[in-house]
């Protein structure tokens, strides 16, 4: 399983290599296109700045007040039983409702424990395999005019939970 860490080092360079060689062989202006697309990235970051300010303030307040420690101490007996770090329960729960709010909590974890700690790595893997359940369902079904969503919620919960379990197992094996 350790090879997963070595492979990780290759992924970004490989994506670069693949895209740029394809671009060159199809004679597109790779550099011009890159510059054009990079401008788009500024707009994306500009768009998420207000959300980040709002949510980092909220999480900062929760952290400074001691409410986050209170919560994770409260659920510690249960999470210890299933070998899941109690600090990550708020992230997993909040992520179901809002991705940006969860991001606020993740940043707090990176700050408290460091991104290279066990918890930091686990939360990084978790965040790369789960999506907001209730928000996505609300927005998409509103557009479709659907009120009875049948088995969507159950399916989404099962998939999310299996993602969390997989993250936990992989993090335990690798780190």
């Amino acid at each position: 399983m350790k090879f997963l860490i070595y492979i990780s080092d290759y992924i970004i360079p490989f994506v670069f290599f693949l895209i740029i060689t394809t671009g060159l062989s199809r004679k597109t202006n790779v550099y011009d296109d890159f510059i054009e697309g990079a401008k788009e990235g500024f707009k994306v970051v500009y768009g998420i700045l207000p959300t980040l300010i709002g949510l980092m303030v909220a999480v900062g307040v929760l952290r400074a007040s001691g409410a986050l420690d209170l919560l994770s101490n409260l659920i510690k007996p249960v999470t210890d039983f299933i070998h899941f770090p109690s600090e990550l329960v708020p992230v997993a729960l909040v992520k179901m409702f809002s991705s940006s709010a969860a991001t606020g909590l993740v940043l707090d974890i990176f700050k408290q424990y460091g991104p290279d700690s066990y918890i930091g790595r686990l939360v990084s893997i978790m965040m790369s395999c789960t999506e907001t359940i209730f928000y996505t369902m609300a927005v998409y079904f509103m557009v479709a005019g659907v009120r009875k969503s049948r088995y969507t919620l159950l399916g989404a919960l099962v998939a999310t939970l299996s993602g969390i379990v997989a993250s936990l197992l992989i993090a335990n094996i690798l780190f």
């Binding site: 930091g120 990084s124 893997i125 790369s128 992989i170």
Partner: peptide, 27 residues
């Protein structure tokens, strides 16, 4: 985010993330 908070190797979780995301999508 990992890079901003001082990770020695921000990309080290990539393959693990891919395995987890493939598994959850498969389910």
């Amino acid at each position: 985010y990992r890079s901003q908070y001082g990770s020695a190797n921000p990309a080290e979780i990539l393959a693990a993330g891919i395995v987890a995301t493939i598994f959850s999508t498969f389910v």
